[in-house]
Design a protein around this nucleic acid. Structure first.
Lengths: 196, 196
DNA sequence: GCTATCTTGGACTGGTCGTTCCAAGATAGG
DNA sequence: CCTATCTTGGAACGACCAGTCCAAGATAGC
């Protein structure tokens, strides 16, 4: 009997995600969301709740639909260090060129923004996922004899994960991709058994 | 003949700096600045200009009075890798405990916030300073035979600088200091001639 | 086509935003 | 003490904020 929604909730959420990603949560008003999505405030509030709920949903979508595929590609690439190198190369390319150039990483940006518990939970999950994936890639590298002896793989995975935040953050402020690339290469080179 | 200011402009700027540092630029209102400083809006605007000018001034003060002393301590410590290690240890301690715990680094936070040119210039300066200081510390380490052969010191300095952003960022979102410490140690260990 | 139910547009709320303005207050040279 | 000059408090500004509300519109089972 009832009416049905006149829009696709996930397609709208993607637009919202892009808006918050590019402009930040605090500096994006509901009016902008309305303008970007074409929805009315009623539909927005009825479907997603208030602004904070909307932001958390958008952030979750980002982690699932944007970050996760990147992590998965790394997980699926069994080459070890070359896989990690490819991950960083792709990361830097995406951050500095193309449709989302200079947007940074929405999850990385979120670390600097709020202290909201729901947000933090998503960020911790995001962090753990990347660290775990990095750790697996390092194990693969080690199994193929690519790594120097005596490396702490857990600690190194954490280190590379923190490095990714640096790349994301600086890319948003306009950092030169070649410089970023130089930094990530140095970090990886120092792990190699055969150094340069 | 004229009246003089009834307050110390730099002391007030320090309070403003702390406010923007802790709470972020976008989420801090002028009303809060007025409340925190005790100044009236008139004095605020007459002395510092609008909100954006005030924020840039506060950021500049942060870089000069907070970051620079940290960098200088690293520059003055000629021990090489132990100096870099001490830098990161101190950084993590400051970020996770004490008066400014979980505030992150104001400059790091600023990377995620705005695209303001004046802000970017300060951030680039901040980045260059740390990278240069890191590079000098690595040179000292190399001169003392602490480093593995064939390291690109410029690239490694960039890498460690990006790592510092990661530490700052994650500390703001509540990261465990021991985990951060693990990450920075791994990065430094991989540079050593004598590993493990 | 009627009706119960949900959705939608958009006016409206009280509050807060950054900023401006001016009269009253403070100051120090004359 | 007078006065020119700057500072200060606080009211006021229009714009925008997130969020609410309700009448009008759309839907689908009957």
């Amino acid at each position: 009997m009832p009416d049905v929604k006149h829009f696709d909730p996930d397609a709208v959420l993607e637009q919202v995600e892009r808006l918050f990603w590019q402009r930040g949560a605090a500096t994006t008003g509901i009016a902008e969301v309305v303008a970007a999505t074409g929805l009315s405030r009623s539909s927005l509030y009825a479907t997603y709740g208030g602004k904070q709920d909307l932001y958390v949903r958008a952030l979750r979508r980002y982690v699932e639909e944007r970050s996760q595929p990147m992590f998965q590609a790394l997980a699926d690439d069994g080459r070890g260090l070359p896989a990690v190198e490819a991950f960083f190369d792709r990361l830097i390319r995406i951050r500095c060129a193309g449709e989302h150039a200079r947007w940074g990483c929405m999850a990385t940006n979120a670390n600097a923004e709020g202290a909201d518990p729901a947000v933090r939970q998503v960020l911790d999950q995001h962090h753990d996922r990347l660290r775990t994936t990095m750790r697996a890639a390092l194990e693969a590298a080690d199994a193929q004899g690519q790594l120097a002896d005596g490396l702490d793989l857990d600690a190194t995975a954490e280190s590379l994960t923190l490095l990714a935040y640096g790349v994301n953050l600086r890319s948003r402020a306009g950092a030169d991709p070649a410089t970023l690339r130089m930094g990530t290469s140095a970090a990886l080179d120092s792990l190699r058994r055969d150094r340069s």
